[in-house]
Structures are given as structure tokens and as C-alpha cells.
């Protein structure tokens, strides 16, 4: 069963790479038009050290931004979920903030905190990824059926107890749903900063150097490495979800 669960996605990825290879081969495209998967191997071998170093830089800054987004998004979601006034007050601000393309925020942040590249990157990753978390937590809390609250409230339980025992666990499935979206968004944020305002750090900078040196296979290799990191992080979230909110999964086992 678990072999099947690994084999099917791996097979799908191999088929995808095969089709890609075939597409390039069939059209006889040179690698500056589109690199094929077989071009990527040499790129990985040649720049292996850079991939490890910069991949790690991208990864840790993405995860840091994501953690910030989880803490801040959950807190904001709680405030909006429990107070109607705060919800009415903050929603338009939040939507407006989220509507601003982060690519335009990158140069502003880069100017505000000149040189603090790590901080800036984490900040952008955080800014782009907290929105889904805040919204889902607030919706999860504000749509809690009153009976759930009444069971404990009628016993004289404090608000904190009700939150801990009922509201928090009940919101977890929504939270993890949002976190899966946020993971990919955080990667976009990190790479935006690394590409738009390069400081020679992260996979985004490696991509950029591929561009300036016309090393097309390198550019594609970076894209694939980013996809790989995204997949790994996504499945870490899935594993956490299974541990903490596995009860919400109703698929027959």
C-alpha cells in the first residue's frame, strides 16, 4: 500500500520528465530555447556545491518566513475570529495588503533595510504567505457552531479553555489547508527577493547568474531544484497534518 503511494507519484514525475525530453528532442530545440532534462545532470554535477549552499539558504529563509507567517497569521486569525469589530476593521486592510503585488514591495523593502538581505528575504516570504493562514483561522473560529462553545461554557469553562479544547483543534484542518498554500507562496516570496534584488544568495541568485552567463541548463536546473524543495516542504506539512489533524481525514483506509 505504502509502496504504491510512493511509486505512483514517482512514476508520474518520470513520465513528465520523459515527455519533456521528447518534446525538446522532437522539435530539435537548442538548449537556449529550452533545456531538456538530460542537460540538467551535467549542470547539477558542475555546480553541486553551489546548489547545496544556495539551496540551503533558500530553504532556511523560506522556512523562517513561513514560521513567522504561522505565528503572526494564527494570532491575527484569532483576533479576527473572536471579535466581529476586529474582523470588520482588519479585513479590508488585509485584502488591500494582499492585493499589492509583492514584486513591487521587494525594492521598497530592499531600500528600507539596505544590506540586511537575510532579513529582507524572510520578510517577503512572510508577507506573501501569512494571508491564507490568517483568513482560514479566522473563518474556522468565527464559524464554530455555538453549541460547541455552549457545552463547555455551561460548565463555567474559561474562554482560554474553550479555545484550547475546542476552537483550536477544530480549526486545525483549515489551518493545514492554508499552510499547504502558504508553503508554495513562501517559496515565491523568497525567490522574488533573491531574483529582483540579488545579493548573491539563494537559488534565485543562482538562477540570475545562469541568466547573465547564458547558462540555460543551469536556469532550468534551478527551477527543478526549487520544485523539489517545494515538494519536500509540502510533504512535511502533509505529515504534520496527518499527525495533528489526521482525524479529519475520512477517506476509507
Amino acid at each position: 500500500m505504502s509502496l504504491r503511494r510512493i511509486a505512483i507519484p514517482v512514476l508520474a514525475i518520470l513520465i513528465f520528465l520523459g515527455l519533456w525530453e521528447a518534446l525538446v528532442w522532437w522539435n530539435q530545440w537548442p538548449n537556449y530555447r529550452m533545456a531538456s532534462p538530460s542537460d540538467l545532470g551535467p549542470a547539477y554535477i558542475r555546480y553541486a556545491e553551489l546548489f547545496v549552499v544556495m539551496g540551503w539558504q533558500t530553504l532556511w529563509r523560506t522556512v523562517a518566513g513561513l514560521l513567522l507567517a504561522v505565528v503572526f497569521g494564527t494570532a491575527l486569525g484569532m483576533v479576527m475570529g473572536f471579535s466581529r469589530t476586529m474582523r470588520d476593521a482588519l479585513y479590508p486592510l488585509l485584502v488591500g495588503f494582499n492585493a499589492v503585488p509583492k514584486a513591487t514591495v521587494v525594492p521598497i523593502v530592499a531600500l528600507m533595510f539596505v544590506g540586511a538581505h537575510d532579513f529582507n528575504t524572510v520578510l517577503i516570504a512572510f508577507m506573501i504567505s501569512f494571508f491564507p493562514i490568517a483568513v482560514s483561522v479566522s473563518i474556522g473560529l468565527s464559524t464554530l457552531e455555538p453549541e460547541y462553545r455552549d457545552i463547555l461554557r455551561s460548565l463555567g469553562a474559561s474562554k482560554l479553555t474553550i479555545f484550547r479544547k475546542i476552537a483550536l483543534p477544530k480549526t486545525l484542518p483549515e489551518f493545514f489547508g492554508a499552510l499547504k498554500v502558504s508553503v508554495t507562496l513562501a517559496f515565491i516570496g523568497t525567490n522574488l527577493m533573491e531574483i529582483v534584488s540579488p545579493h548573491g544568495r539563494g537559488l534565485g541568485a543562482l538562477f540570475d547568474s545562469g541568466r547573465t552567463n547564458s547558462d540555460y541548463p543551469l536556469m532550468f536546473a534551478v527551477l527543478l531544484a526549487l520544485a523539489g524543495l517545494g515538494i519536500v516542504l509540502y510533504y512535511i506539512v502533509v505529515a504534520l497534518e496527518r499527525i495533528f489533524a489526521g482525524w479529519a481525514d475520512r477517506s476509507p483506509t
Binding site: E145, E147, Y148, D150, I151, R153, S154, L155, G156, K165, I166, P169, K170, L172, A245, W247, A248
Partner: peptide, 19 residues
């Protein structure tokens, strides 16, 4: 004057905690 622990409630919706 307020909620007290000597009361028990059950509703039409059983509101059991799924987790």
C-alpha cells in the same frame, strides 16, 4: 448568575469532538 458546573446539556446536534 452565570454558568455553573452542576448543569449538563445535550442538543439536537450531538456536537461530539471529532478529534
Amino acid at each position: 448568575r452565570g454558568p455553573r458546573s452542576t448543569v449538563g446539556m445535550a442538543f439536537q446536534n450531538p456536537v461530539l469532538l471529532e478529534w
